[in-house]
Design a protein around this nucleic acid. Sequence first.
DNA 1: ATGAAAGCGCTAACAT
DNA 2: ATGTTAGCGCTTTCAT
Lengths: 340, 340
Amino acid sequence: MAAKVTIADVARRAGVSTATVSRALKQPDRVSEATRERVQAAIDAVDYVPNSLGRNLRTQRTGTVVLVVRDIGNPFYLEIFRGVEAAARERGLSVLMGHTENDAERERWYFDMVRERRADGLILMTGKLPPGFRVTARSTRVPIVVALEYLEDVRLPTVRIDNVAAAREATAYLAGLGHRRIAHVSGPTPELMSRDRLDGYRAGLADAGLAGDEALIVRGDYSMAAGREATARLLALEPPPTAVFCANDEMAMGVIAAAREAGVEVPAGLSVVGFDDIVFARNFSPPLTTVAQPRQEIGQRALELLAAQLAGEPVGVADEVMPTRIVPRASTAELVTSKT
Amino acid sequence: MAAKVTIADVARRAGVSTATVSRALKQPDRVSEATRERVQAAIDAVDYVPNSLGRNLRTQRTGTVVLVVRDIGNPFYLEIFRGVEAAARERGLSVLMGHTENDAERERWYFDMVRERRADGLILMTGKLPPGFRVTARSTRVPIVVALEYLEDVRLPTVRIDNVAAAREATAYLAGLGHRRIAHVSGPTPELMSRDRLDGYRAGLADAGLAGDEALIVRGDYSMAAGREATARLLALEPPPTAVFCANDEMAMGVIAAAREAGVEVPAGLSVVGFDDIVFARNFSPPLTTVAQPRQEIGQRALELLAAQLAGEPVGVADEVMPTRIVPRASTAELVTSKT
DNA sequence: ATGAAAGCGCTAACAT
DNA sequence: ATGTTAGCGCTTTCAT
């Protein structure tokens, strides 16, 4: 009915002070049973909805956190968002999702949201801080948790996986199937994550007593197209690899598509392993063997860490490493030695 | 440096009133050149960042709008989000993305965000209003724009596509390739969008002078698995269809995967058309013929409508219909009549 | 258990 | 062009 109902209207109606109404809402135990009921009746009668603007100004909190990713179009992030959101809702927080597309200006924009108090804190999944940001500066103190990616030379609470170990395991898996010529399609190697997976690949080869061959390593950019291009290079080698470990699922799918077009069947002629276990991995044909990370849990844990930080709890500089696991599907097979 | 710098600190430093500082920031033309510079210098000196909480309370606006979808995990929505976000940033608005997962409680939650003034308005892509919501009620007046989906019996500003016409065109496309037995895998028919696409399919058949056959219509739920199941049913028919129009891309991909596993090549033995042109459609094997909608533009337009509404401009009850187009790719081919 | 009163930081009348 | 003043709606001491 009324266009604008404030706490004062409720107070008047219930015959109490605004302070009592506020208490009845936020700290019911500090108000007598009878009063509480009277207040509730008044609230219903005038159709009162608390205006959080007033509260926010008073408490200097917005109840909103921002999840910053590079590319919101990447379905990979959505599962993490789910985890973050679920944990946030439990605590009455809202989650804003923003993406930077590697643009420095936008990276800063999200930081400014916190500085302007439009949000309380940040979960960073961009792999970098905005240029010029110094963690030590009191003036720029922004509650942050780094998820998934991690930052070199910066000590911030982090939730991540061990990319080296996971890649090593994936490579070992292929070696265990009898493969000897195992290629790797990596991500852009300036990025820490790509380097880690590449390092893991090398370590995996070494574990299996296999010599590395730089010709078997092709740089990509995590796109399906990059997987296609890499395939052309790899199949032209003499001898060609019998297995490929890709730094993500999209590139693995590109490899499979290109290989098939080149007349090489997967997994009969080429075993392919991806990384991430995106939704389509399971439904690809053939279903993709890949490395799964506990995305939802990562998101959840990141929010928990951030919430603790916001609540003023001593968090220290957490560095939580979540477990990964190989998901064997039909894109990999034992090497059939078809020597003459 | 300072933990908390307010507009008063700047005013003191610049030797002006807080009102002048506020003006220098928001209406620079109402302040003399000299003053403006002095204020700016003071701002830099004390490292002042405006606290939007104060402004929000004063202006009764948050500068935030919420994009409500059913399932945030559906990559289809992301392109729309991009359009919304881009248009929002131009206007200094932020976009919060929320998903309901068809849960009534959560549907209401986003409405309450606006009622509690945690957000200024809603872009609804859920295809329904929360239970009990009446557009007429002044008390629940919430700025809303409906995108993509539209609501029966409710007059709200809407940005959408013509699903009937698009489906009709898709069916006509298959008929134009010579197909006579054209099947349809629909979405859940209680939903308006699914019904529209089904109606369009029927109209398309009629256009081509083809008799409908209810056995050729299979209900799905927009999942890849549903596409797979539908395929089993369709291939068992006598004679089986030579073409399938699916109500979305995921189901089309399920159909293709299942057909191939059943020994039916696409498009040689079966032509398949999807709907939505999701990112993977282009990279599927074979690349999927589908109906593309201008997602980014839909998002952009929806935000423009909402922004106008928030600005108090007379919007009326807009009903904007955006154009769709068929994207021919390799999952469809002319029917080869292999009659004996 | 409840009330009175003082702001949180900002903007917008209204003056000058 | 600039200053004064009065809140926006809420929470939270501090009293009682």
